[in-house]
């Protein structure tokens, strides 16, 4: 994973609750490992049936076409576990989604892809939307180390992130490598479990009769 670097960007406002991963990346973009996920992001909202842009959808409105920060309503990323939702947001260019809450699986998927899920209060969300409505070109500084999203003019929106997740994002950790460092503990657990629940492992041992249907 690439280390997370602080950035400045306009904030695209998508103030609805319960934006699900089917909306973020429709299933048509899941048919190939090489699909153009940036194009698929919010496809049903961004494009009409002929593939033309829907003019008033936020990501089709300058200056939000190049936004790296998205403000969204509560329970962002609910529904399907498809990690392509996080990939699509990243490929489009987003580095941070700021919302009052995130669905559990999306939250994990985002963190594993260097996409910052910043939990801000409902009041701050409303304040951000108001700032953007007043001036769509308002730029925000997204600072993970400082745990704040700060508009050019105005008070910062604070978000809390657990210290180790923050460090992992800032370093761009490889989580599998980190887990493999617990290899001995994992092996010891497996050995003890095999002694305690041998039937759990015997049931999967190669056995021609079992494979016969």
């Amino acid at each position: 994973m690439q280390p997370f670097v602080a950035f400045r960007s306009v904030g695209a406002p998508l103030n609805r609750a319960n934006i699900n991963t089917d909306a973020i990346i429709p299933s048509a973009w899941l048919r190939s490992a090489e699909a153009d996920l940036a194009r698929g992001l919010f496809a049903a909202w961004r494009f009409d049936a002929d593939g033309n842009e829907i003019a008033d959808f936020v990501l089709n409105v300058p200056p939000f076409r190049t936004a790296r920060l998205l403000f969204a309503g509560a329970n962002f990323g609910c529904g399907s576990s498809r990690e392509a939702a996080a990939w699509a947001l990243k490929r489009f260019g987003f580095g941070c989604i700021a919302a009052p809450s995130f669905a559990d699986i999306f939250h994990e998927n985002a963190l594993r892809n260097g996409l910052l899920p910043a939990r801000i209060s409902e009041e701050d969300l409303a304040r951000a939307i108001a700032l953007i409505e007043a001036d769509p070109n308002t730029r925000f500084h997204v600072d993970l180390a400082g745990e704040a999203i700060t508009p050019e003019a105005g008070l910062p929106f604070r978000f809390a992130i657990e210290a180790h997740r923050k460090e992992a994002l800032l370093r761009g950790d490889d989580e599998i490598a980190a887990t493999l460092r617990h290899g001995e503990a994992i092996a010891a657990h497996a050995t003890a479990d095999m002694a305690e629940r041998p039937w759990l492992y015997a049931a999967l041992a190669p056995d021609a009769a079992r494979e016969k249907v």
Partner: peptide
């Protein structure tokens, strides 16, 4: 436990998951 693709890779490589405790 429903997981994403990175976590699928994690299970394949380690037979474990690192999970927030619900």
């Amino acid at each position: 436990i429903g997981v994403g693709t990175s976590e699928t890779e994690h299970v394949l490589a380690t037979q474990t998951l690192v999970l927030p405790r619900p």
